[in-house]
Design a protein around this nucleic acid. Structure first.
Lengths: 143, 143
DNA sequence: CATAGATGTAATATGAAAAGTTACAGGAGG
DNA sequence: CCTCCTGTAACTTTTCATATTACATCTATG
């Protein structure tokens, strides 16, 4: 299986917020148009990003803005904000290993730590990319 | 979303093959009993592992054995063997970014390389763990 | 050579999770 | 108070992993 598209959508959203700042009011409808999905999907992700302290959302008048310097927001921050299965880990484990089998009874103890290390490596790489890197490329491509 | 349990099941299977070598005939039924799943699931995974050159499966008489030295098989080899979405990448991308939007039209160019790097980091860590490491722990836990 | 015990494989069902949709209450500025 | 937007619940649709059933095929062995 794959990591849900909530992550890439959220990155897309934040890229829009940064790119269109001061040019457009970035509402859920506007974002839905750019991402190509439903406004409610966007609103739910806005909630997650807001709860993580990454953005601010105005009620009434509407519109979302980024709350922190772009170089202080990493892809991992966005990932952690929207991917709630973060706690479960990215690896799904089969649920009924046989406790009467010497392998089945120890497979978790044997693998859990190593799987966590793999996930750590992935997350470390995510931390090395900031939203500023992404925006810079976007601007570059639109000169 | 998460990576399917095919991966951990396959690791479990190969651990059994190594652990029970010469003690038991390791058939799909035997493995299904240790893993706690259906024999057909096991057989399909055996196919994948066989096609990747990791194991040998006897027809007729039955039983699977590992074809390479344990220290030459890494978790990545097993992952690549059974996870066919390997080519698709672990990140799902939203499918309809708006081509008329400066962000929507460039988001793929901007992100694809970085997402690949993240996946590479994960795979590199997977390559650092061999089946021998896993078996050693299993034996350790069963002294 | 017949058979018993395995694998190879297709077809289908089941279940869970992601994504999309509709609907509406509530806030805020004009 | 009217309009535009967010917050949120409820429900549907789609997709995919996992499980199950069924059967053809292979091979060692009695």
């Amino acid at each position: 299986m794959q990591i849900s598209s909530k992550f890439t959508i959220a990155v897309h959203m934040m890229t829009c917020m940064a790119y269109f700042t001061e040019m457009e009011k970035v509402t859920s409808d506007f974002l839905a148009g750019s991402v190509g999905t439903n406004p409610v999907i966007i609103r739910n992700l806005m909630l997650s990003l807001k709860n993580a302290g990454l953005i601010e959302v105005k009620r009434g008048t509407g519109g979302a803005t980024i709350k922190k310097p772009l170089e202080e927001i990493t892809l991992f921050d966005i990932y952690a904000a929207v991917e709630n299965e973060k706690e479960k880990g990215i690896f799904r484990f089969h649920e009924n290993p046989n406790p009467a089998c010497p392998v089945g009874s120890t497979i978790h103890k044997t693998l859990d730590g190593r799987l966590a290390q793999i996930q750590d490596a992935m997350e470390a790489q995510m931390r090395s990319v900031t939203l500023w890197d992404v925006i810079r490329d976007t601007r570059e491509f639109n000169l």
